[in-house]
Design a binder for these strands. Structure first.
Lengths: 137, 137
DNA sequence: TATTGACCTCAAGCTGGCTTCAAGTTGCAG
DNA sequence: CTGCAACTTGAAGCCAGCTTGAGGTCAATA
């Protein structure tokens, strides 16, 4: 069988059933069919949920995520927009790498305060103006 | 001069003044002094704010971020905990790399649906059980 | 065929992270 | 020394993203 109950999808994906219903209301996922009232999902929903989860990790709103993976319907998907999103994520990754270094630094460096550790301050500025990310004006 | 008004910190950091006051209430930052009522910041606050911003990108709550960078006060900072956080961020980065590949794939692949593109589905499962990240129970 | 546990809907409630508002204070240019 | 822009506080408001609750339905086991 290929048909999953909402509870099974929940278990497999790590999302709660209530979240799955919420995503459905937002148009992010859809059950394949209903058995009585009960939603039945195809297992491709798990891929979609994995993407949603990654999109969230990348800081995208559910609406943005919806817009990205609305492959359905459109003849022409918006390739440049998707590459732009990918670029954003790569930028994001660069910041996270600095964070990793900062965390490991703080764990190891024994300068009395990081404000006084020159290598720390230098590190903080290797990422000179890595976007505000503080989105709205 | 080394002494910044809240408005200057706002401009330099990209955070709004209201957010800076909010962070202060949470204990994440602190002005060096006051000139009358007005907060005066040392420019090391900018490093701290950069860390806060990166921590947020990594999906940490403000409380967690506060806990991480409470270098002050403690004799012994919790090195293992910091390395554990760094590990989390690295895990996070791995997921984001998959997202980049997924986005570029969707932008380029012309299979009728991604559910039907085997290389897409395979990619989705290269990250077998990359943590729930769906934090609370 | 009766029970039961997993599902259903819809509305209201909650949390984190800020922003906005109202009313007041103050440093500094003119 | 006046005016005003930039600050101050505390409380209330707002949005995204869910969760919870009440009351109901239904499929499958005993």
């Amino acid at each position: 069988m290929n048909s999953l109950d909402i509870g099974e999808v929940a278990k497999l994906s790590g999302f709660k059933a209530s979240a799955l219903r919420y995503y459905e209301k937002l148009g992010l996922i859809q059950p394949d069919s209903r058995k009585g009232l009960r939603r039945q999902y195809d297992d491709t929903v798990l891929d979609r949920l994995a993407l949603i989860s990654m999109g969230q990790s990348a800081g995208f709103s559910l609406d943005e995520i919806g817009a990205m993976f609305q492959d359905s319907g459109q003849f022409e998907i918006d390739r440049p927009a998707l590459h732009a999103k990918a670029d954003e994520v790569e930028q994001h990754i660069r910041r996270l790498r600095i964070l990793v270094r900062a965390l490991r630094h703080v764990a190891e460096c024994s300068a009395p305060s990081h404000a006084e550790c020159p290598s720390f301050r230098k590190m903080m500025h290797e990422a000179p103006q890595l976007e505000p990310l503080h989105k709205k004006s």
